[in-house]
Write a protein that binds this DNA or RNA. Structure first.
Lengths: 129, 129, 129, 129
DNA sequence: GTGGTCTAGACCACT
DNA sequence: GTGGTCTAGACCACA
């Protein structure tokens, strides 16, 4: 079972941190297709946040077809193909990079600095995990 | 004189877009130390937003010691060292990289993909510029 | 919980009086790290000022890394090191002293008079508290 | 003749800096009773500020009975007793000290630190002189 | 309920 | 004409 962590200091909304951690869990293989996620209620208690916060995260992932909620049973990693189309995927990557460089360059960081820093990310854990 | 652009669609607050563009302008040398920025009123008209929105952006940059304002005279790029302390700077870079990789990896992008994409960012313009 | 007071007569902007009182509260130990501040709405009602005025004060302190806010949750005294770098701190002290002596000496007060008066400041409360 | 300097960085309004420097000049004996001050126009040119800024400073000092303007002749240090009544003087000192300590303590400086710093002000020049 | 953003418009302080 | 402060009120994002 994946272990969730929330970090208030990042400024990233709780529901988004949860989404990111689930996505990351899948991408890294820590969450297998078909695996059941904690119930909304259980996770809310564990993370000490409001029920709605967990529900919102699960809901968004459902919309993205990454999770599937079976009435009365629980929430599972969707077995259908989660992968985005290649074109869609590339567009997303572009958009992430763009936002990222906007902020970075405004702080005076050069692209080379960014690349170097990224290369140092061998032993990496996502924000608030 | 720097040219500002606002993009409603990005979801990034107007005042933050202005902040980013000024920071980027300084970092890229398009805004020189001591240079006067447009008046709040003029920029408000040009960008078709409220006076207070511009004032808010200028004010935040003033608190950050990046701008200097003299009532009745105008707003200027601060001539004092804008550079962050090296330790602070590295901390900021780490934090940006961390948020970035969190999101990216959650979409299944690898660090190598990120680095490759970054290397393609030769002719680059920031989001909403 | 700290008690806020606003004094119209001082000519000091409301939002700045709030900032000073929070800073003073922290410096004097009346506000503990992690403690939650009144909600912007509650404080606005209590002090009979507009919501935005409180928000402005909190926002400036957030930019200065003294407060931490999480949307939907509240505003808290930041747990990270609030202390300024020693060099920055000394610079600030110098600047305050400089402004202070400029005004004082212009009224014909000697430095010894100032020091004596300061020594009498045992039981002290800040302006507009 | 006294030499004036304006410093944009202090955030103190120009007209106030001029007032302080004249008051300081008198208090320190650099400006003698009956001595003529530069004309508004001449000082405005010298300091590269607007005529109104100088006029405002002179005007306020006239109201305080520190300067006297003789129509068509010029502005002079008033020969009448400039000294405040002792009670008024003490009140002013209190008020200055109060504002000063409010700001200082909010930055975490102790009164002892302030006193020590003041003691180091042997070779002192007022803000922007 | 929490804070965040924005508008429209007023009035003030400074140059 | 410059920026600064403040209000009243709206709508949004998050918990």
């Amino acid at each position: 079972m994946i272990k969730f962590h929330l970090d208030q200091k990042t400024g990233i909304p709780y529901y988004r941190q949860i989404i990111d951690q689930i996505r990351f869990g899948i991408a890294s293989g820590k969450l297998a297709v078909g695996e059941q996620l904690p119930t909304v209620r259980a996770l809310a208690v564990e993370l000490k946040v409001n029920l709605n916060t967990i529900a919102k995260a699960y809901k968004e992932l459902e919309i993205q077809n990454i999770l599937e909620t079976q009435q009365g049973t629980g929430t599972f990693i969707n077995s259908t193909e989660n992968k985005m189309f290649e074109s869609e995927r590339h567009q997303k990557l572009q958009s992430i990079i763009r936002d990222f460089t906007t902020v970075s360059l405004s702080y005076g960081f050069t692209i080379d600095e960014l690349i170097n820093e990224l290369k140092n990310q061998k032993k990496w854990k996502p924000t608030s995990m």
